[in-house]
Nucleic acid binder design. Structure first.
Lengths: 143, 143
DNA sequence: GATGAAACAGCCGAGCT
DNA sequence: AGCTCGGCTGTTTCATC
């Protein structure tokens, strides 16, 4: 992991479909050399995957919310498979503090969100925060 | 936006570098037809960008945390530019409830996190939750 | 939206430093 | 041993139907 790797990651983060030829010009290396570096970063697992950033609104997801769930540890074995099977769950984190789970969800309307919260309450007490705006839109770590 | 568009988005979400030829086979269309659809989705803004999913740990980011910030609305004009200029801020949302801002950050260690929280406190009261584990790792909306 | 042709990029070899 | 330059294959894109 040297400075050239970092630069390649930055460039690919901006556009994951950037041609190797373009990248090689930016870092002043040959195409095969860049190819080999990218392949290594993939093998090492630094690059987990190439993915899309989509517009939730255009896909009909108008409601973004964070749900805090206060759950007893005994529920966890049941909770984990459940939460992983929910397609609208964008993120679920086990965190410090009273509300032990922090869940990020996206739904077409508050109606579906409410229904989901209802199902969540079998695991514990919830507290929901609706997102109004995002001064910093979700993004990956900066390399 | 028909079912073919949805399928293309799903495939690209799994691998944004998938060749058009492969995609065209999956949806039983010709390459130019698929190319045109992708181009349209880009123009419409459904596809915001092609990006990478990176491993934060391999990049030295060992601490992931959510910070709740209780800020008076008067501070907002100063706060927004500040938070947008912080490279370690992965996300910043304006939410309902007392703690009006929910900020997701990533730092190499608790030391840097603590220093950041110190700077945040000029804007209001904070409450921090460290992430232990992520049963559902951050992901985009499912199409 | 499909087909065929041209341009382009990516891959793999050989030669070089 | 690693990098750079060459040719070859496969993919993308454009014009036409």
């Amino acid at each position: 992991m040297d400075q050239i790797d970092v630069k390649l990651l930055k460039l690919l983060q901006k556009n994951a479909r950037a041609p190797v030829k373009y990248l090689s010009g930016e870092v002043s290396l040959s195409s095969p050399a860049v190819s080999a570096r990218i392949e290594r970063l993939e093998r090492q697992g630094v690059i987990r995957s190439y993915t899309l950033e989509l517009d939730p609104l255009q896909l009909g997801y108008h409601i973004l919310a964070y749900i805090h769930l206060d759950m007893s540890p005994a529920e966890k074995p049941k909770f984990i498979p459940f939460i992983q099977s929910c397609p609208n769950v964008l993120e679920c984190n086990c965190v410090t503090g009273n509300y032990s789970m922090l869940i990020k969800v996206s739904y077409p309307s508050t109606q579906e969100l409410d229904s989901f919260i209802g199902r969540l309450q079998q695991f514990g007490k919830t507290e929901t925060q609706i997102v109004f705006s995002s001064p910093v839109a979700p993004r990956g770590v900066m390399v």
